[in-house]
């Protein structure tokens, strides 16, 4: 990480640390802590998307499916088999990794529109399976009574506990991603994005890296899905459909695909927009989403971080 990244890191961490202290006493916004728990969970997904799409340039419309694989694996293993949630979490991640690997090897030979369609099709298939395997997943009506999380023997009851747990994970994942980016692996990923055959000719095994970063993004989405399950303690396939994949991408795009800070900013912003301010539109929320998506893609394709003065931006990754 560059010194500038460290500065932003410290400032963000301080902000996140003190945020509940500020909003909780104010009744009207005390539930912002709850919104921020969701924002944190989504950020974990979106950091993966930033690596995969923003840096490595590989499109995936299936991130909600991996989110769902983690969520349902956790839900099923804990609610139906009584497994400890902390043990179910890696199981979900493993399954997501396996699925991503099997799908990724053939899929990532495709590029552009084809890759988008392939991942989109895969995401829809996962959604169909979640809706159809009623015996396991509860079908369209979903699952309820999924156990919550326990941390060192204590049941994690308060939103505040969840808040600090989730955001600690977010910052760990953030560090992990930053370290990857500022290394030979990160350079290889960006090289694949910019000039794939040149990268290949300079000794970068592009196929392997693409699959690996796809698997990493799937694992992150799956982890986030597990946290989500234990936080809301009920599941419904509609949280894992194509629209959610698009929402995740929109979050990253709003902040800026090619910046981890952008992914974080966009996710928090769009989670607030989605959870807080779009409710007035009820069913027509989706229209607003479409409009934001279109406007961002047309007029701000590099996201909010591209509005940061150029000199500063050029120095960070």
């Amino acid at each position: 990480m560059t010194p500038r990244d460290w500065r932003i890191f410290v400032i963000t961490a301080l902000f996140i640390g003190f945020f509940p202290w500020v909003v909780q006493p104010v009744k009207a916004i005390s539930h912002y802590v709850d919104v921020m728990v969701f924002a944190g969970i989504f950020t974990i997904v979106c950091l993966g998307i930033s690596l995969l799409m923003g840096y490595a340039g590989q499109i995936s419309m299936a991130q909600a499916a991996f989110f769902g694989i983690g969520a349902y694996t956790s839900g099923i293993l804990t609610a139906r088999f009584g497994l400890n949630p902390w043990a179910a979490m890696p199981a979900g991640a493993l399954l997501a990794a396996l699925v991503a690997w099997v799908v990724g090897i053939p899929a990532l030979r495709l590029k552009g529109h084809y890759l988008a369609m392939a991942t989109l099709g895969f995401g829809v298939i996962v959604h169909i399976v979640l809706s159809e395997e009623v015996a396991w997943t509860g079908g369209p009506s979903g699952m309820v009574d999924i156990p919550g999380l326990q941390v060192v023997g204590l049941k994690l009851k308060s939103e505040l506990g969840w808040y600090y747990l989730v955001w600690t994970v977010v910052f760990l994942v953030l560090l992990f991603c930053f370290h990857i980016l500022h290394s030979r692996v990160g350079r290889a990923l960006r090289a694949i994005h910019e000039e794939e055959s040149a990268a290949e000719a300079m000794g970068v095994p592009t196929a392997r890296y693409k699959v690996q970063v796809f698997v990493l993004s799937a694992v992150l989405a799956s982890l986030a899905g597990s946290f989500y399950t234990h936080y809301v303690t009920c599941l419904n396939p509609s949280s894992f459909n194509l629209m959610w994949s698009i929402r995740f991408i929109l979050m990253v795009m709003v902040g800026g695909m090619q910046s981890l800070w952008g992914a974080l900013l966009g996710t928090v912003l769009m989670t607030f927009v989605g959870n807080e301010w779009l409710h007035v539109f009820a069913d027509f929320e989706v229209l607003v989403y479409g409009a934001i998506l279109l406007l961002v893609a047309l007029f701000l394709p590099k996201g909010l971080v591209s509005l940061v003065p150029r000199r500063a931006a050029a120095r960070s990754i």
Binding site: I59, K111, G112, H113, M243, V286, G290, A297, P301
Partner: peptide, 22 residues
């Protein structure tokens, strides 16, 4: 636009059309 932006753009149009139909 980049390919990614183009994909997002046609997806956004599809969301808008669907939303308007609703």
């Amino acid at each position: 636009s980049t390919v990614l932006s183009l994909i997002i753009i046609t997806i956004a149009v599809s969301i808008l059309l669907k939303g308007s139909a609703m």
